[in-house]
């Protein structure tokens, strides 16, 4: 599982950031980046299948647990190798490592998905791809114009 982002939907309201902070004791793991004044993109851990961060973590604090890239705070030394290894820049260290844990243990699932006012975030791969296909089909049908 991962959090899929529909960039066409994101309104850059930063609700996901504040929600993530709320459920993680003030440390958020999702960040909204703005493409000048034209679009916004929430950036967070991709939970890679072959996760660079887990490969460099010598204490095993970061490890794969099924699809999730999990994190054991007790084992983290704060060395920062994970931040160097992550190809997407979504792990960082501030005394210990910080990254998305897909709201482990939270019954309702990831807070960012539940809170996203625009439905831009989802954990449903089929929904994300269906929307993209439909958008492409509509664009083809009207020649990119209305």
């Amino acid at each position: 599982m991962a959090v899929y982002i529909d960039i066409n939907r994101c309104i850059g309201c930063r609700s996901c950031e504040v929600a993530c902070q709320r459920v993680h004791g003030g440390h958020g793991h999702i960040n909204v980046h703005y493409v000048r004044e034209y679009a916004a993109v929430p950036v967070l851990c991709h939970h890679c299948q072959e996760a660079g961060c887990t490969m460099v973590c010598f204490t095993g604090a970061l490890y794969k647990e099924g699809e999730r890239t999990a994190f054991d705070v007790e084992k983290c030394t704060g060395c920062g190798l994970c931040a160097l290894a992550c190809p997407f820049g979504v792990v960082w260290t501030d005394k210990i490592a910080h990254k998305c844990d897909l709201c482990q243990g939270r019954e309702e699932g990831p807070a960012c998905i539940a809170t996203c006012p625009a439905n831009a975030l989802s954990d449903d791969f089929d929904l994300a791809t269906r929307r993209a296909r439909e958008r492409a089909a509509r664009t083809a049908a009207v020649g990119g114009k209305r």
């Binding site: 609700s15 950031e17 504040v18 929600a19 902070q21 309702e108 539940a114 809170t115 996203c116 006012p117």
Partner: peptide, 17 residues
């Protein structure tokens, strides 16, 4: 509040804070 007819459980940043 997933069953709320308008918000369906979503919140803005202010609501989250």
């Amino acid at each position: 509040m997933l069953d709320h007819p308008v918000s369906q459980g979503a919140l803005c940043a202010k609501g989250n804070a």
